[in-house]
Design a protein around this nucleic acid. Structure first.
Length: 818
RNA sequence: GCCGAGGUGGCGGAAUUGGCAGACGCGCCGGUCUCAAAAACCGGUGGGGGCAACUCCAUGCGGGUUCGAUUCCCGCCUUCGGCACCA
């Protein structure tokens, strides 16, 4: 038998017919297993690089089905977003048309690969029955004060005339047109994810089955740091200035304070300043500095003195205030105490502007009397020039000085986070409208719940004007205020697509529910997701947002779990010619040709065999051919079987004994590989070994038909999650009526794995010299005796008695002469 | 700069807790079949030396621990990914 696409078609229809992937979420008989792959953005047809995600997910789902779980494996579309709108502008095709065309095409592809989903649960984020609930979530957040509007600087591309998401800014440039991105102040909607910073951080500990790497990335992104907020009185005024520091032990070494260009106190300080214009000029310069300039290694630190002074609360010393271009606006208080002796940035600045540098922590490894510092010393050490704290360690001083500041009310211990609130406004068309209304009298009013969804108008002009196209749709824009019935205007911005994808895994639970986003009881039964599978590129954004929304729902008592994804697997990319597969690079491998020529299972098997799934892999067409050969080689076993001569078996001969040993060892190993970190590549190789073994045995004529049959059954059961079509075909050829996926996953029998005689490698001085056969129960003495009786061992002993003999039970014997 | 993951034949990659380095696949070489080729099948294949039995060298580099190190420790080199003036 030769493998061909007809086999694929036949079984795909069959699985559809028997509803293999249909799941009844109310069925309490089976243990549940929620297997989820990250849903795609339908921007173009899929290539083999994309396929990895779905092939892995399908292998896991099928394996779990065979283990008897009730498996939920759904699919949907992250269907709102900028690429659809760009196509609209470029080709004059409606984003909706373009999106649904792609959805249709990708669905066709997934089906032709035999990827199984419960299609009745399909979810599409750009459909009103979905985004109604995205809008509803916005309103729940709004009600709790977790959605709010404020003026903020956003990435603005002057050429595309649109705001860009942070992830669309590459090295300070627009990813589409490479224009320098500007910062533009706009009134924007935010979700207060910072409210959950602490929980998002500490609950990472609950995620034992997430890759360490992803947890570390989230940890760094949240960026919690422990320090002290200090009030510095401003000389000659009643005001004071707050600074956050993680190194309060260096407080005596603070010789100036630096402010970010938009710190609110600046206006006050320069009101009657003689150099007011000069300062304003400097502020403008910093403000307009391109984002990319800050990313440069040689970014020049610049500043301007304000001729104002703050008072160091420890020693009452007057220290000057500066504005400096390296102070971040959005972090801490936007003002820092600068300690040039112990911070390299402050050091560089102090050298440039001739500000004093005072050492307060002595480097314990520095040579005595090293003279003037040539660079900052950022480590720990012994306190100097620090009044009563001299001679204590910097670690101790940190606590003592913090105590002192808290006692005297001049400061307080504090934690700071790098995590910022989530800017969700987009001045774009193809997204879920933000369900808010602005009225002169009543100001900000949410659209009443029973009026949701706020429908996205479809008849619309797509011109890049810098405002959402919705601004020009009068029917949409003008409405009346839900509170006072007076004339009002709708919000015209739409939501970031990451909002859509932050809760889709809940919608799969009850996709047709029209009174609620999801059914709480069913969600509580089926979530958290048992296995989430996707690309590592979502390690921060999508996974952080989903965790945030889940925690919010938990607090609203909509669900009773704190984390959405119990286990996460991030697969590596498939590359070609050393680069990530992409249309623009022209190195994509199209699956369609592979499917028609070699069948879906050939592609599936190769994708699983190509290498460790969590690592990147290089696509090689020859490797694909290897899998094609293997599949046909396995199928040829069926031909041999059919023509094999009948016989009865009473007792196994030694070759059959060996074959069953190998078979059960393979069951054990493959199961172990699947249960662990999805080692599909080694699982497949072990099945190949078994097949090779079987072929060798067939040559000897020692195998009888009933044993041949049993081993064949097991081989195809083991292959079923990887090559479902071929396995199903073989299963039926072997005379089975039901689907192979209704058969239980094979279990190994210990009796076949136990052996009487084992082979022990004998080493002399760590080098393998001979192998001996010993009985498993032999003790070291007997093994030694056998080993020393070997001619080759005596040869290497050269007549000297061994100095030492190390025996590791049933593993190895090492004879030491030196 | 900081954090993380890697580095093993010509290539993709194997190697339970430290225990036979190179499984499996590709490629290559030889053979069978064929008028011939392709496909398929069978055999060989880390490097050096030797007619051979064998032998020496080999897991990025340099040390260390150990009877024994791809695996553990210390110090480097290098590739990739993330963050990047976070006070």
């Amino acid at each position: 038998m030769n493998y061909s696409i007809d086999i694929d078609k036949k079984w795909q229809v069959y699985w559809e017919k028997i509803g293999l992937f249909k799941v009844d979420t109310q069925d309490a008989q089976k243990q549940k297993y929620y297997c989820l792959v990250m849903f795609p953005y339908p921007s173009s047809e899929l290539h083999v690089g994309h396929a990895r995600n779905y092939v892995i997910g399908d292998a896991v789902a099928r394996y779990k089905i065979m283990q008897g779980f009730g498996v939920l494996s759904p699919m949907g579309w992250d269907a709102f977003g900028l690429p659809a709108e760009n196509q609209a502008i470029k080709r004059n095709i409606h984003p909706k048309t373009w999106t649904f065309r792609n959805i249709e095409r990708i669905t066709e592809q997934l089906k032709s690969w035999g990827i199984g989903y419960d299609w009745a649960r399909e979810v599409t984020t750009c459909k009103p029955d979905y985004y109604k609930w995205t809008q509803w979530i916005f309103q729940q957040l709004y009600k709790k004060g977790l959605a709010y509007r404020k003026e903020a600087y956003a990435n603005w591309c002057p050429s595309c005339k649109t705001v860009l998401a942070n992830e669309q800014v590459i090295q300070g440039q627009c990813e589409r047109c490479q224009s320098e991105v500007e910062q533009k102040k706009l009134r924007q909607w935010f979700f207060k994810i910072t409210e959950y910073a602490e929980k998002l951080l500490s609950d990472l500990d609950l995620l034992g089955d997430w890759p360490q790497k992803v947890k570390l990335m989230q940890n760094n992104w949240i960026g919690k740091s422990k320090g002290v907020e200090i009030d510095f009185p401003i000389d000659g005024t009643k005001n004071s200035l707050r600074c956050f520091t993680t190194r309060v032990d260096t407080l005596y070494g603070a010789t100036f304070i630096a402010l970010s260009w938009d710190h609110p106190i600046i206006d006050e300080l320069i009101g009657a300043h003689p150099r007011k214009e000069e300062i304003k000029c400097f502020i403008d310069k910093v403000k307009n500095q391109p984002v990319s300039a800050r990313l440069m290694d040689n970014f020049e630190k610049e500043g301007i003195a304000l001729d104002a002074y703050a008072v160091n609360p420890m020693n009452n010393e007057k220290i000057p205030l500066w504005i400096a271009n390296y102070i971040l606006t959005e972090y801490g208080t936007g003002a820092i105490m600068c300690v040039p002796a112990h911070d390299q940035r402050d050091f560089d600045f102090a050298v440039k502007y001739r500000l004093p540098i005072r050492e307060v922590i002595r480097n314990p490894h520095a040579e005595e009397d090293s003279g003037r510092l040539t660079q900052a010393y950022p480590g720990e050490g012994i306190m100097v020039n620090s009044g009563e704290f001299n001679n204590s360690t910097s670690e101790d001083a940190k606590e003592k000085i913090a105590d002192f500041l808290e006692k005297t009310g001049r400061g307080r211990r504090q934690f700071n986070f790098r995590l910022r609130d989530w800017l969700i406004s987009r001045q774009r068309y193809w997204g879920a409208p933000i369900p808010m209304i602005y009225c002169e009298k009543c100001k900000e009013v949410p659209v009443p719940e029973d009026e949701l969804p706020v429908l996205l108008p479809e008849d619309i002009e797509f011109l890049p004007t810098g405002q959402s196209p919705l601004t020009y749709v009068e029917d949409f824009l003008n409405t009346c205020c839900p509170q006072c019935q007076g004339p009002a205007r709708r919000e015209t911005d739409t939501m970031d697509t990451f909002v859509d994808s932050s809760w889709y895994f809940l919608r799969y639970i009850s996709p047709h529910e029209d009174a609620r986003p999801f059914d709480t009881a069913t969600a509580n039964r089926w979530l958290p997701v048992d296995q989430y599978i996707g690309g590592v590129e979502h390690a921060i954004l999508h996974l952080m947002y989903s965790r945030f929304i889940t925690k919010f729902f938990y607090d609203q008592k909509l669900i009773d779990f704190k984390e959405p994804f119990k286990r996460l697997f991030t697969q590596g990319m498939i590359c070609k010619d050393g680069a990530k597969m992409s249309k623009s690079k022209g190195n994509v491998v199209s699956p369609d040709y592979i499917i028609t020529q070699y069948g879906a299972d050939t592609m599936r098997l190769y994708i699983l065999f190509i290498g460790p799934p969590q690592r990147d892999a290089e696509w090689q067409d020859e490797g694909l051919m290897g899998c094609w050969r293997f599949i046909n080689r396995v199928l040829r076993l069926l031909d041999q079987y059919r023509e094999y001569k009948e016989s009865e078996v009473d007792e196994l001969n030694s070759e059959e004994q060996l074959l069953l040993k190998k078979t059960h060892a393979t069951i054990k190993a493959v199961t172990y590989d699947l249960e662990g970190d999805f080692q599909f590549n080694t699982a497949v190789s072990k099945i190949m070994e078994l097949v090779n073994h079987l072929y060798k045995l067939l040559d000897t004529g020692q195998l009888r038909k009933p044993i041949f049959h049993d081993v064949l059954e097991i081989i195809f059961l083991l292959l079923a999650p990887f090559t479902p079509h071929v396995s199903e075909e073989a299963h039926s050829c072997l005379g089975n009526q039901d689907s192979i996926f209704r058969k239980p996953w094979p279990e190994y029998e210990q009796k076949y794995l136990e052996e009487e005689e084992i082979e022990i490698p004998v080493l002399v001085d760590g080098k393998l010299r001979v192998r001996i056969k010993v009985h498993v129960d032999w003790q070291q003495k007997e093994v030694e005796k056998e080993a020393l009786a070997q001619e080759r061992v005596q040869l290497f002993l050269k007549g000297h008695p061994p100095k030492n003999i190390v025996y590791v039970n049933r593993k190895i014997l090492n004879i030491v002469t030196k």
